[in-house]
Structures are given as structure tokens and as C-alpha cells.
Design a binder for these strands. Structure first.
Lengths: 129, 129
DNA sequence: TGACAATGTATCAGAGTATGATACATTGAC
DNA sequence: GTCAATGTATCATACTCTGATACATTGTCA
């Protein structure tokens, strides 16, 4: 369900955060779901338990997860929020998309190719099943 | 023309690389343009010249810039490439877009909002003036 | 009720990276 | 040919990532 790359320059815990955020965004993890214990996930991925704990803590601080010592970690994020995104979040999101698209442009992607990729991913994330 | 955030967790030289890639992708920097000397750009941004040099070197290694000792640094990237993007680049680009969109989804963006943002940015980058 | 397993958290160490201060090498102009 | 301008190399310091290990909390079950 989750995969990481030890060769990548992006920190492992950031890869985990991105992966878990992706699962939540896709709806594969919903409010109330239990996450695997840090030791189990760490063993499955061949990394240290502290690295998984770091990712859990980051997402807990971000308000997406909740951890209780002795019990475990669950998802508390709800994708549909009552209030819309804040200005700060909008800025961050736009910057992230701009960086990805700039990269695509320089890499030689045509407008049609990048539009296809974007549309497909948006449909995958925002589809109403 | 370029701005950085010292408070951000992303390294300064990576911010510079992203910013310069963005300028190249937008066409504000084209093949042959001279970049400011590392000392000048460093002074303008209030950072060390090594940090700017690092960004220049990264982009030189990526084939976007060319530096000559004593002369300066110029842009050699051409946005329109003869060959299409490689599979590895496609994977990287898709991962970047997926991360940005997942972030947007969890932040509460609606499909319409994120589509508008994506379309606007794609048009800005790929417009044919 | 008490012992124990399961789970998250804290502490510390080693390796790597980012940033900066400083010195060096190369180019071109006068 | 000297000198200013520019990129590059070297070294130091602080910070971060990852991991090894120990601790604290929760719940179960005999």
C-alpha cells in the first residue's frame, strides 16, 4: 500500500507523509481507519521505527492523524471540510503545482501530455464513486 | 525576479533551482540570456555566494545553464526539445503533480477550484505568444 | 489485581547536508 | 601586463536524517 525509495534525495519520513496524504486524499484511508503500528510498518519497509513515528507525528501535528500511546494511530482527517481552504494553503498548493508544471515544461512535455496527466489525476482524486 | 524564503524547510539552493526553472519554463529566460553573477544575486537575496553557485552548478549539471570562469553564466536550455521526455522524467513529473494534488484535496480544494488553478498555470506556461 | 504484551514516545549517536567564510583560478579589458 | 570581474575549490559550523536503545502508556488475560 505504501512504498518508499531509499535512493531518493527526499527524506523517507517525507515520502511516507506524501504517501499517506495520497491515500487519504484518494479515500483509501478514511476517518477512523487504524494505521499499522510503527514497528510493523518500519519492518515492512525495512527502515527504523523512529522514521515511521516521525511521519505519524508530522501528520498528527497537521491534524490528519491521532496517536495514543499503547493503542495505536488512526485517521481523523475528513476530506470534505466545512470551510474552504485558507489563503496560506492556497499559496502552498499553487506553488507546488507551479513547481511540478515548470519541471514538466522543461522536461519537454507538451501541453496535451501534461493536460492529460493532470486531468487523469484530478479525476482519480476527486471522483465521486 | 527571484525570491526565496529563509524560513522554509526546503534548501535555499533548491528554491533557487525551482525559481530559475520556472523562469525558463515561462520563457522569461531564454537561450543566451546572462544570469547575474553569483556575488550579485547572493547580495540581492542576502545569502552566501556559494549557495547561488550551488544552484547554478545544479542547473549546469542538468543541462540548463552553462558557466565559464571569469565570464559568467548563461542559459542554454531550449524549452522545445527534439526528443520527448524520458520515462524516468515522466515518473518524476507525475509524482510531483500527484503530491501537489493530494495536498490540495486534503486542504479542502474542490475539483472546480483545482481545475481552474491547473488550467490557468498550464495556459501561462504553454501559451504560444 | 497484577503481570505482560503491544504501542507510541523520548534520548542519544553517527553520518550526511546546507550554509557560510575565505582563498584560489580563469577570463577579459584597459 | 596589470587588474577587476567571475566562477570554483576548500574548510568549518550548524542542522537534519536515520537508526539503536530505553522509557511510558494502554489494554488484556490469567
Amino acid at each position: 500500500m505504501l512504498s518508499i525509495s531509499l535512493a531518493s534525495s527526499v527524506p523517507i519520513h517525507d515520502q511516507l507523509v506524501a504517501g499517506l496524504r495520497g491515500l487519504i486524499a484518494e479515500g483509501k484511508l478514511v476517518r477512523g481507519d487504524e494505521l499499522p503500528p510503527v514497528r510493523q510498518l518500519a519492518a515492512d519497509l525495512g527502515i527504523n521505527l523512529n522514521t515511521v513515528a516521525r511521519a505519524y507525528r508530522d501528520l498528527t501535528d497537521a491534524g490528519l492523524l491521532a496517536s495514543v500511546r499503547g493503542r495505536g494511530t488512526i485517521v481523523i482527517a475528513t476530506v470534505e471540510r466545512a470551510a474552504g481552504p485558507k489563503a496560506e494553503e492556497r499559496k502552498r498548493v499553487e506553488a507546488g503545482i507551479a513547481a511540478a508544471l515548470s519541471d514538466a515544461k522543461i522536461a519537454g512535455f507538451t501541453r496535451e501530455a501534461i493536460e492529460a496527466i493532470a486531468v487523469r489525476q484530478i479525476e482519480r482524486l476527486w471522483k465521486t464513486p
